[in-house]
Simulated assay, not measured.
Amino acid sequence: MAKITAAEVNKLRKSTGAGMMDCKKALVESEGDFDKAIEILRKKGQKVAAKRADRESSEGAAIAVVNDDSTKGAIISLNCETDFVAKNDSFIKMANDFAQLALGVDTKEALLKLDYNGVTVEEKLTEQTGVIGEKIEIGTFKTLKAPFIGSYIHAGNKIAVITALSKAAEGAEEVAKEVSMQAAAMNPVALDEDGVDQEVIDKEVEIAKDQLRQEGKPEEMLEKIAKGKIQRYFKDNTLVNQAFIKDSKLTVAQHVKNELGKDVEVTAFERVALG
């Protein structure tokens, strides 16, 4: 039997909102596997608060930038070991500088080879690791290209999002920012239902069926009811189908079309979260 620590139980409690004893039992049952423990809690009918919580976290700064004609966006995370370093002005400036450089390349490997004040980005990271005494590294690197790209950085540089629109219509900057804020706040698993992995869908169906069995629903009804629950899952967890946070009567897709025209849609987004 895996030994479950109080710290692990507390971590699961913070990520799910479930009770301490329920969390401990789930971790024991899953033999310490965090993701399986969340599944166990959900199958037992627990209302898990953060299904997709960014559990593997590190300190640093997540920065999103867009080029001058808003056709390419980049997000990088500059990672460090402590929040104290992450809040330092010179660290944040360096993160912003690296993000601007990222607009000119398409891979993290290419970014690391670029010149930064006479040294490569990689050499600068090694230098700063020595100066600060903490491991400093580029964590995430993401880019998007589209007719229009918008961005948003949440306060404290802990969450950054870039969003692609199919057309550079008047008002696109504000709408793309609103959609990016939506993604930052609601953490969707995908753009739309087509972007959800089949493995995730199958798992959600399994969880829904287990919940229904515990409610006493007949076995022959489970498949039909579970499919309805999956449609609700798509509505709650895919960006364009979510209720728009500023007007819950509209989906995100409907808001975009209302503001920019029926031929404009969100085509992609990238989200990075730290801390």
Rank of each mutant, 00 (worst) to 15 (best):
F269P: 00
K108P: 11
T82C: 13
P188F: 08
E259G: 11
V240W: 00
M1S: 15
E170C: 11
S180Y: 04
K158D: 04
F91V: 06
E215W: 02
E199G: 14
I132S: 02
K177H: 07
T16Q: 00
M181E: 13
A7F: 05
K24R: 10
M21I: 13
Q214A: 15
K72G: 03
F269K: 00
K47D: 15
E39L: 07
K11C: 13
K246P: 06
A160E: 06
E59K: 11
G73A: 08
I76H: 06
F98R: 03
E199L: 07
R213I: 10
G73Q: 09
S90Q: 13
E109K: 07
E259I: 03
E206Y: 05
K229G: 13
G195R: 03
L27V: 01
T143W: 12
D210I: 00
V196R: 01
I201T: 11
N258D: 15
I201R: 01
E206L: 06
G45S: 12
A185G: 10
L114D: 09
L101H: 12
Q214P: 02
R13G: 04
A49L: 13
E178W: 01
F91T: 05
K135R: 08
G275L: 10
I207Q: 05
A176F: 02
L144P: 01
A102T: 05
P147A: 07
K93H: 11
N117Q: 14
G216D: 09
T107K: 08
A190K: 01
K177M: 15
D197V: 08
A61W: 00
I162T: 06
D54I: 10
A95V: 01
T140N: 15
S180A: 15
A185M: 14
Q100H: 13
L239E: 04
K217T: 02
E193A: 15
V196N: 00
A155T: 10
V131I: 15
A86T: 02
L27H: 03
T251V: 09
A268S: 12
F84D: 04
E56V: 13
Q100A: 12
K113H: 10
K93W: 11
V105A: 13
T107G: 08
S248M: 11
G216F: 13
Q231V: 08
G275E: 07
K203T: 10
V205C: 08
P218G: 10
E220C: 09
L101N: 10
A190N: 03
F98T: 04
I153G: 02
D192F: 02
T238C: 15
E193N: 12
A61C: 14
E193L: 06
I63T: 07
T251R: 04
E219Y: 08
L27M: 03
V240H: 01
A86F: 00
N187W: 04
E8W: 02
G156R: 03
K87Y: 13
N187D: 14
E8H: 04
E59L: 09
A155C: 11
Q128C: 05
T82G: 13
M186A: 09
I162L: 06
N241D: 15
V65W: 09
E265F: 03
A2Q: 11
K3R: 15
R271V: 11
Q100D: 12
D22T: 06
L101D: 12
G104R: 09
